[in-house]
Simulated assay, not measured.
Amino acid sequence: MSCQADYYVSLNSPWTHLGGARLMGVAKRYGASVRIYPIDTGEVFPASGGLPLHKRSPQRQAYRLQDLARWRDVLGIPINLKPKHFPANEATAAHCVLVVRETIGDPRAIDLAHRILKALWEEEADTGDRETLVRLISEIGLDGTSILERAGEPRWAALRSKETQAAIDRGVFGVPTYAVGETIFWGQDRLDFLERQMAVDR
């Protein structure tokens, strides 16, 4: 039986964007399934001692930009280090991902999450804007208008809140986090370790 990786993301995270394609490549190589959770880091950070970006020290903020530039260049992913619409209001986008996950399945939900991240970090799109979300959903071949309408149902906010708390309880403290069983891998720079775990579990 193939293993399952639980994939905890923020739709504002450049690190999630930088690791997205590589994660799916690893999963494909080992026949693993991936379950996506678009959690609320506004809840995760204070529960785990973390700070949102704007509250971090100048030294940490400066280092983050240096590290993003390094990974951008190594991976050949043309991200904007300071995108125009960052941080976007990600709640509606997260609810759309949940709608797709629960009604269509994880693969298309992951496609949507990755499309949203690409739009924010490479295309200067406002991914908190409803018209933009309709366009992005439509671009991956789904009904953007219908999914956005369904995303307004209160149950998706409740589900996201529940899954965020479950992530905190599991030990998740940042994004992206990949979890296989009891083992947690934090950050796109830990994908090599995730691959080793999948090789053992397959």
Rank of each mutant, 00 (worst) to 15 (best):
F185I: 05
S146I: 06
E182P: 03
A157M: 09
P176N: 08
I147S: 03
E153D: 15
I137D: 02
T164V: 04
A179L: 11
E149H: 11
A179I: 09
I184H: 10
Y178I: 15
I147Q: 01
G144D: 01
S161E: 12
G174P: 06
G141R: 06
K162H: 13
S161L: 14
I184S: 12
A179H: 07
G171E: 01
V180K: 09
G174F: 03
A166E: 15
V180S: 10
I137W: 01
D169L: 12
G141D: 01
L148W: 10
I147W: 01
G141H: 00
T145E: 11
G141F: 02
D169C: 07
A179E: 11
S161Q: 15
I140G: 02
A166D: 13
Y178C: 13
T183P: 09
G144K: 05
K162M: 13
A157Y: 13
I147A: 06
L148I: 11
A179N: 08
R150A: 11
V175M: 15
L148K: 06
L136M: 10
T164F: 05
G174A: 12
D143K: 07
P176T: 08
F185W: 04
A167G: 09
A166G: 09
E139Q: 14
R170A: 14
G141A: 03
R170P: 04
L148Q: 03
R135F: 09
G174Q: 02
Y178K: 10
T183W: 09
G152N: 13
D169P: 05
A167V: 06
A151N: 04
W156L: 07
R150I: 09
Q165L: 14
D143S: 13
Y178V: 15
S138K: 06
E163Y: 05
E153Q: 12
A167E: 02
E182M: 08
G171K: 06
A157E: 11
V134K: 10
A167N: 02
V172Q: 04
E153N: 12
V172G: 02
S138M: 02
W156P: 06
G152W: 15
V134R: 07
R135V: 13
I147L: 05
G171N: 03
E163A: 07
V175R: 02
S161D: 11
T145S: 09
P176S: 07
